[in-house]
C-alpha cells in the first residue's frame, strides 16, 4: 500500500509575484502604491469617501424620519378620540359607531391571539420543512420543495382569503371543528356554535401564509451553517438528530428567531385574508370557534364609510394601536433574542 502524497507536495506554495524593487518603492513615503495610483485615476478620493458616508447616514436617518412622521400623524389625527377616551381606549370593550363609544380592546385581543396561534401552528411546521430540506432531503426532491415553498409566499393574500372561504371554512365546519370538540372539548377552548368562521380559522389561514416566510428564511440560515460544524459533531459520534440539534439548530437559533419575528410581523398586519374568515364581530371571544376582529380588519372595513369626526379619529387611533402593538411585540422579540443569545456561541447543554 503506497501512502498518499501529502497535499503540500502537490500544490506549490504561493510565491510572491511582486519584484523586490516594487516592494521598496511601495514602502517609501513620497510615492503612493500602484493600487492607490490606480484608484486615484478612477476618481476615488477623500471627498468621495466622506460623501458616501454622509449619503449612507442620510439613508439610515430616513428610517427614523419615516417612523417618526407616521407616529406624529397618527397622534395628530386621532387627538379627538385621544382626548375623549384617553388611555381607557386601549382597555375598553365596546365599538358603537351610533352612540360614539369606542374601545380597542377586542381588536388588540383578536390581533394578538390570532397571530400567536398562527405562530404556534406555523413555527414547528416551518422548522420541520427547513430541517428536512437542508439535512434530510434527497437531492432530487430538494428543488421542487424549495420552489413550492417560495411559490406559497408569492400568492396574494386575497387569494388565500378566497381559498379559506370556499375550502377551509367548510372543512372547519364539517370535519375539523367536530373533531376538535370531540377530542379536545375538555380544554373548553372549543365551545359554542361552530359556523366555520372565527378566530381558529383565521389563525390557520395566517399560519399557512407565514409558513413559507419562516421556512424559507430558516432554510437559508441553516444552509449557512458551515459543514465543518456538522462533520465535527458527527465525528464525535453524534447521531443525525444530535448533529441537527447541536451542530445546526444551536448555531442558527438567532436567525431562526429573526425569521419567526418576520412571520409574526406579517401575521399582525395581515388584513384581507383575515377579514374574510374571522367573522368581524368586536367582542372578546371566549372560544376559538367564536368570531373575533383584528385591528387591521376594522380599519379596512370601516374607514371608507366612517361618518363623523370622532368615529374617524377613533379609527385612526386603532391604527396607532396597531403601530404600538407591532413595536411592543418587536421589542419583546428583541429581548427574547438577547436572552437566548447571551450565552455566547454554541455549546452542548
Amino acid at each position: 500500500m503506497t501512502s498518499e502524497p501529502t497535499p503540500q507536495t502537490l500544490i506549490p506554495a504561493p510565491q510572491l509575484q511582486i519584484s523586490p524593487e516594487k516592494l521598496t518603492s511601495a514602502r517609501s513615503e513620497s510615492e503612493p502604491s500602484a493600487v492607490r495610483l490606480f484608484l486615484n485615476s478612477r476618481g476615488s478620493s477623500g471627498l468621495a469617501d466622506q460623501g458616501f458616508a454622509a449619503l449612507m447616514l442620510l439613508c439610515a436617518c430616513s428610517i427614523f424620519a419615516i417612523v417618526g412622521f407616521i407616529f406624529v400623524i397618527l397622534v395628530l389625527r386621532s387627538r379627538l378620540s385621544l382626548a375623549q377616551f384617553g388611555s381607557h381606549f386601549f382597555t375598553h370593550t365596546g365599538w358603537d359607531p351610533v352612540s360614539g363609544d369606542f374601545g380597542a380592546f377586542p381588536f388588540i385581543y383578536g390581533t394578538l391571539v390570532s397571530s400567536l396561534l398562527a405562530l404556534l401552528i406555523a413555527v414547528p411546521l416551518a422548522l420541520g420543512v427547513a430541517i428536512f430540506i437542508t439535512e434530510l432531503c434527497p437531492r432530487r426532491l430538494k428543488a421542487p420543495i424549495s420552489f413550492l415553498t417560495e411559490l406559497l409566499a408569492a400568492i396574494p393574500s386575497v387569494v388565500y382569503g378566497l381559498w379559506a372561504v370556499f375550502v377551509l371554512v367548510p372543512i372547519m365546519r364539517d370535519q375539523l371543528g367536530p373533531f376538535l370538540v370531540k377530542y379536545l372539548g375538555w380544554t373548553h377552548l372549543f365551545e359554542g356554535a361552530n359556523f366555520g368562521v372565527g378566530l381558529l380559522t383565521a389563525s390557520i389561514i395566517l399560519a399557512i401564509m407565514i409558513l413559507p416566510i419562516i421556512s424559507s428564511l430558516t432554510r437559508d440560515i441553516m444552509q449557512a451553517v458551515p459543514n465543518s460544524q456538522r462533520e465535527a459533531v458527527l465525528a464525535l459520534g453524534a447521531t443525525r438528530w444530535e448533529m441537527i440539534r447541536i451542530g445546526v439548530l444551536r448555531n442558527s437559533r438567532i436567525g431562526i428567531v429573526g425569521a419567526v419575528m418576520l412571520g409574526l410581523g406579517r401575521a399582525l398586519g395581515e388584513t384581507m385574508a383575515v377579514t374574510m374568515v374571522i367573522g368581524n364581530h368586536p367582542e372578546v371571544p371566549h372560544s376559538l370557534f367564536a368570531p373575533g376582529y383584528t385591528l387591521a380588519s376594522v380599519i379596512a372595513n370601516e374607514f371608507s364609510e366612517a361618518t363623523g369626526d370622532l368615529y374617524l379619529s377613533a379609527l385612526i387611533e386603532i391604527g396607532l394601536a396597531l403601530f404600538l402593538v407591532t413595536i411592543v411585540v418587536n421589542a419583546i422579540a428583541r429581548l427574547m433574542v438577547w436572552a437566548v443569545t447571551r450565552g455566547a456561541p454554541a455549546r452542548i447543554s
Binding site: 365596546g94 365599538w95 358603537d96 359607531p97 351610533v98 352612540s99 359556523f195 368562521v197 372565527g198 377579514t275 374574510m276 367573522g279 368581524n280 364581530h281 368586536p282 368570531p291 376582529y293 379596512a300 372595513n301 370601516e302 364609510e305 366612517a306 361618518t307
Partner: peptide, 17 residues
C-alpha cells in the same frame, strides 16, 4: 339598543365584507 348607521354594534352574528 343598536340604532341606525353605516355600521352599527351588532348584538350577534358574523360580519362579511
Amino acid at each position: 339598543k343598536v340604532g341606525k348607521n353605516t355600521s352599527v354594534k351588532w348584538p350577534t352574528g358574523i360580519g362579511q365584507k
